[in-house]
């Protein structure tokens, strides 16, 4: 026991010595314990994949003195994660990997009492566009054919998605409104399940992130019809955007890292620097490209402004859906 303690003290002293010069030079804040890397979704989904990819980049390049520890809190469309962050007793060692439920969940579940504008912006790692997909056996290759087929189905046109109020349902609601379609919407518990049931033709079309559908696109099973992005996607140069089709609409899923309310300025500065460096690695840039994410780098002030516009916009979109 005493030996262990002595060794421990020795190590601690050594650690302090080794850190001391650094602190003397930069007075920099450093995490003192593992960082709780909360994910607003369950294991295996898009947000989870991104969180674990970020973790792998930080780990491989030895970028943090304490590890990022992924912690899935997907309950209640991310409500669980938002509550965990709002109530954390260690705001300097807690981070949140978000998607758009960051905006929609507090709007749809007002009794949570979550005010996301009190959260601390850290980094916008990219935004994930949405694409309209059909199975190749449908024989549809353009949006016009899609609209025609959906109208001909007369209320029996089935589309799969991840649930009411979720990102893809917002896009599908827009689609239905813009082209005057009656769509039967079947909610699934994740983008992977949606893609699977399009591959098995249990549903007729989906609105998925490119990353979720890419495998089936490469094999020729899925046909992309329309991108809901501002510009054509580099990986899908032949797919027209909704804007080109005369619809003033684009929609992205945010892949951002956010800190809890009350995070100290020093810690926020440390994490902003950390994620800037992660963002600039070849690994992350390669990921953006291969998964068809669009870069949308913003500083902290711009992120706050972005949140405000997104809250207003989602309030309108949800209201239009009757939510």
């Amino acid at each position: 026991m005493t030996i262990e303690r002595r060794v421990f003290l020795g190590l601690a002293a050594a650690a302090m010595l080794s850190v001391a010069p650094l602190q003397a030079v930069a007075q920099e804040w450093q995490p003192r314990k593992p960082i709780d890397f909360v994910i607003m979704a369950g294991p295996g989904g898009g947000a989870d994949q991104i969180a674990r990819f970020i973790q792998s980049v930080a780990e491989q390049n030895d970028m943090t003195s304490r590890p990022l520890v992924p912690n899935n809190k997907g309950g209640g469309s991310g409500a669980e994660a938002l509550i965990a962050l709002a109530n954390t007793n260690d705001p300097d060692h807690t981070l949140l990997v978000t998607l758009n439920s960051f905006f929609t969940t507090p709007l749809r579940q007002e009794n949570l009492g979550i005010d996301i504008t009190s959260f601390t912006p850290i980094a916008m790692m990219g935004v994930d566009p949405f694409v309209l997909w059909v199975h190749k056996d449908q024989g549809i290759s353009t949006v016009e054919e899609f609209v025609e087929a959906a109208k001909a189905a007369d209320g029996e046109w089935v589309m799969g998605g991840t649930g009411k109020g979720q990102e893809d349902s917002i896009v599908i609601a827009f689609l239905a409104g813009a082209y005057d379609l009656r769509i039967k919407y079947i909610p699934y518990d994740g983008g992977g399940a949606v893609a699977k049931d399009l591959a098995g033709q249990q549903v007729m079309a989906t609105v998925n992130n490119p990353a979720e559908a890419k495998g089936f696109y490469d094999s020729g099973d899925f046909v992309p019809l329309l991108a809901f992005s501002d510009e054509r996607l580099p990986a899908y140069p032949d797919v027209p955007t909704a804007k080109e089709k005369g619809q003033d609409f684009s929609y992205y899923n945010q892949r951002a890292v956010v800190g809890p309310p009350g995070m100290s300025e020093e810690a926020a500065a440390y994490y902003r620097d950390l994620f800037t460096r992660i963002y600039e690695t070849d690994a992350w840039q390669g990921y953006l490209q291969s998964e068809s994410l669009s870069p949308l780098w913003m500083n902290a002030e711009e992120q706050r402004a972005y949140w405000d516009t997104q809250i207003t916009r989602h309030r309108e979109l949800l209201a239009a859906m009757g939510e």
Partner: peptide, 25 residues
Amino acid sequence: LGIPGSPTTAILLGGMVIWGLVPGP
């Protein structure tokens, strides 16, 4: 297919993306 059959395989799929593979058919 690149589709998880269980929660564990969902994590494995994430791993495959990290290692630079494209899960899918």
